[in-house]
Amino acid sequence: MNAFLEISHCVIGRKEALIQSFSNIVESGNVVILTGKNGSGKSTLLKTIAGLILPISGQIKYNNQSIHAFTFAERAKLIAFVNTHKLSDEYIKVIDLVTLGRYPFNEKYKHSEITEKALATLGISHLANKYINEISDGEFQKANIARALAQDTPIILLDEPSAFLDYPSKKELFFNLQNIAVEEHKIIICPTHDIELSKTVGTLFWHLENGIITETLEQIAWI
C-alpha cells in the first residue's frame, strides 16, 4: 500500500479560520498544485502541513500518525519545506546550503552523494562552489529546492517554487518535480501562480477561494 497524507476535517488559520473544514487524502507519487489569490491562505495551509502552525481543529496525518504529534527532529525526516526566505549571510556556498538539508540526519558540513544528486537533479552542479550572493535569484531558488531534496523526505512542500524563475527554468523545474514525485514516490505540494505550466505536471489540483478548497481533476479557470 502506498504511503499517504491524510487531512481530515481541518479548519486552518492562525487565530481566525482562513480555510473552512477541509478533508483530503494524497497518496505518494502525486504533485498537488495549489492555486488561489494572494492572501487566500495558501501559505498558511502549507505551514500547517509543515507542522509550523497547529490547525484550529481537525488533524493532519501521515500514514495514520498525526504530524503535529512528532518532535521537530522526527518531523524533519518526514516533511521538507522551502519558502522564499532570503539569506542574510554572504559566505554560504550553494553546496553548503544544500548540505543543510542533511542536518536532520546528523551529517553536518559533509558533502555526500545525496547532496551531489540533489544538485544534479536541479541541474546546478556547476554552481556548487559559488557563494550564494554570486548567483541569481532563480539559481538560489533551485539551490533551496535542492536542499529540500537532500533532506530526502516523503513529503516536500514548496512555497511558490517557480517565483523568480525564467520561463525555460520554470518549465524544467515543474518537469523535474513531476519526475521526482513519480520516481521517488514522494508527495509534492506547491502553491503557484504559474497556472498554465503547472497544468501539465500536477496530478491533483486544489483551488482555494473564499476559505473553501475545491479539488478538481483539471485546473479550473479562475481568473
Binding site: 509550523l52 522551502v82 519558502n83 526566505h85 539569506l87 542574510s88 543543510l100 542536518y103
Partner: peptide
C-alpha cells in the same frame, strides 16, 4: 547555522 534559512525552514529541519 541552520537558522540562516529563517525560523520556519529551520524548524522543519528539526531545529
Amino acid at each position: 547555522s541552520v537558522m540562516v534559512l529563517g525560523n520556519d525552514a529551520a524548524k522543519t529541519l528539526g531545529v
